[in-house]
Write a protein that binds this DNA or RNA. Structure first.
Length: 501
RNA sequence: UCCCCUGUAGCUCAAUCGGUAGAGCGCCGGACUGUUAAUCCGUAGGUUGCUGGUUCGAGCCCAGCCGGGGGAGCCA
């Protein structure tokens, strides 16, 4: 699209910590798979199941807590499959009828109950698991009324689970998805931090007015229900303010001071998009580099996506294998292929030529000057090159005002990274650092120059070549997990007409 | 926002030509000396998304609305 505007993304933070694997014993200092320190104390002195499953049988007393996935058994012995979210697997707890005083209570345990178990880790007598817990005490921390608890042992559809998003993280699928999401977020920070990039917290509330007004969420403290005309001057900030649609412009201000920076946080788009690839609230990562051109930008993008996928492959093996078995038989092969591939780099003009010569009958024309459609992007990356493709030097008229104008007068230094199956995963550009060129473009597009005075001053005072890109976190999680719908890779999806939980 | 599909028990689904709603699983009760989505027996469970219309009769046909899904556009 051309016309209006499009910036990119956002900011923010959040504490990434352990989550993946267990901690447990009060003085453990083992690194988790992502290098962050483990939490070393548990309020109730439990050992995480991830750690128990790695341990050897022992006479030492152990204690675990978690939620019961299934209960089986007879009058003499019951088996509880207990999961605490520390890993995909559940651990089997064996409760003999004479081993605990409250066996009658144990027999009333149903799926979803929370339990506190004490016992010993022993070699399993049964098949299907190598170790299990022989219980000496079972305490029910919280019952889950059988007839009311919506999760069953049997599988549910993703559509149904979306309606109970408060409980779906207790399923194998969503446990795996959100552990992977965490690992990706952690890998993103570590990639940039290890390269000396500074994390910048760009604002969520912003008055910068350079995107299409219809696409933004407006923020006000005024009660508009009465139908009175909106008066910005008397509103909280004294002017119209909205939720950020991109932290890029603010990111550029910091890149032209601190050198290499990135933003990582939530972003909001009020577009009425109803697709498996769009959310009204999503997270974006936006690196921005001073003293960098488009080639350097492409290099970083390629290194970046490979690095974070590599990290997840090495740290989330069991979760990925589960997701592969359940949702995408080619998942691991696809991810390994991305990591091993050298991304193809072509210009937009070359892409148009390839598409024209392809002999394919596309629904949309492949005319120079038109943006590439999803079908075109997929043909390039899936059919023709069969690996990720970076397309650069797009026509200026279909790209944003801040992209650097090439010498041919027709194209700009933009680049999109195209992935098999999901199309564009990254969009970026070298920025227009020449004040006169930037001002000319802004005027050409009818944007109010005054609202961007602060942005333009970076070009007035010590301007330098710089470049950056944006990556949608959820689309990345989608690609890495094989989940088809973006609503299943964010805890509580916000979409048109839906903001539950 | 546009196009298409869809809505029946807690869940997944069935119900011939329009003839008065069923199964599996789950839940609940019982049986079973180690189970693996355990197994076996039994009970309960429904205003067929909502509103209106056509008809002797509507889960089924028609209209509107609401929810869900897919595709498109837009993007990340």
């Amino acid at each position: 699209m051309s016309g209006s505007d499009r910036l990119f993304k956002g900011r923010l933070m959040e504490r990434q910590r352990d989550a993946g694997e267990g901690a447990g014993a009060p003085s453990s200092t083992d690194p988790c798979p992502h290098g962050a320190p483990r939490l070393t104390s548990r309020p109730m002195n439990r050992t995480r199941i991830a750690e128990l499953l790695r341990a050897d049988p022992s006479d030492a007393p152990i204690r675990l807590m978690g939620w019961v996935r299934t209960r089986r058994g007879s009058k003499r012995v019951n088996f509880l499959a207990v999961n605490d979210g520390s890993c995909l697997e559940s651990i089997q707890v064996v409760v003999g009828g004479d081993d605990v005083p409250n066996f009658d209570e144990v027999q009333r345990i149903t799926t979803g109950c929370a339990v506190d178990v004490e016992g010993r880790l022993v070699a399993s007598q049964g098949k299907g698991q190598s170790v299990e817990v022989q219980a000496t005490a079972v305490r029910v921390l919280g019952w889950a009324e059988g007839e009311a608890y919506p999760l069953q042992k049997k599988g549910h559809t993703l559509e149904f689970l979306r309606q109970i998003a408060h409980l779906r993280p207790r399923t194998n699928t969503f446990g795996a998805v959100f552990r992977v999401r965490n690992a990706l977020a952690d890998a993103i920070h570590r990639f940039f931090q290890s390269r000396g990039f500074v994390w910048v917290h760009t604002p969520i509330l912003t008055g910068s007015d350079c995107e299409g007004a219809g696409e933004m969420f407006h923020v006000t403290t005024h009660d508009l229900a009465g139908g009175a005309p909106y008066d910005p001057a008397s509103d909280f900030f004294g002017k119209p303010v909205h939720l950020t649609v991109s932290g890029q412009l603010e990111g550029e201000l910091f890149a032209t001071a601190l050198g290499d920076i990135y933003t990582f946080g939530p972003t909001f788009r009020a577009e009425n998009s109803n697709t498996p690839r769009h959310l009204a609230e999503f997270w974006m990562v936006e690196p921005e580099m001073a003293f960098c051109d488009l080639a350097g930008d492409m290099d970083l993008a390629e290194d970046f996506v490979k690095a974070i996928i590599r990290d997840v492959l090495s740290g989330c093996g069991a979760d990925l294998e589960f997701l592969q078995e359940r949702y995408d038989k080619e998942l691991l092969a696809t991810l390994q292929h991305i990591v091993a591939s050298s991304f193809e780099r072509i210009t937009y003009t070359e892409a148009i030529r390839l598409l024209a010569e392809s002999g394919e009958s596309f629904e949309y024309p492949t005319e120079w000057g038109h943006d590439l459609q999803t079908e075109h992007e997929r043909w390039l990356t899936e059919q023709y090159f069969q690996r990720p493709v970076i397309v650069c030097d797009y026509p200026r008229d279909i790209k944003a005002f801040y992209m650097r104008q090439n010498e041919d007068g027709k194209t700009v230094a933009a680049m999109d990274v195209l992935f098999p199956r999901i199309g564009e995963i990254i969009g970026g550009s070298q920025r227009e650092e020449r004040l006169d060129r930037l001002q000319a473009r802004i005027r050409e597009l009818g944007i109010d120059e005054k609202t961007l005075w602060w942005y333009l001053e970076t070009r007035r005072f010590g301007t330098v070549p710089h470049a950056g890109f944006g990556l949608g976190l959820e689309r990345c999680v989608q690609f890495v997990t094989g989940m088809a719908n973006i609503r299943d890779v964010i805890p509580f999806p916000r979409t048109p007409g839906s903001a539950d939980f």
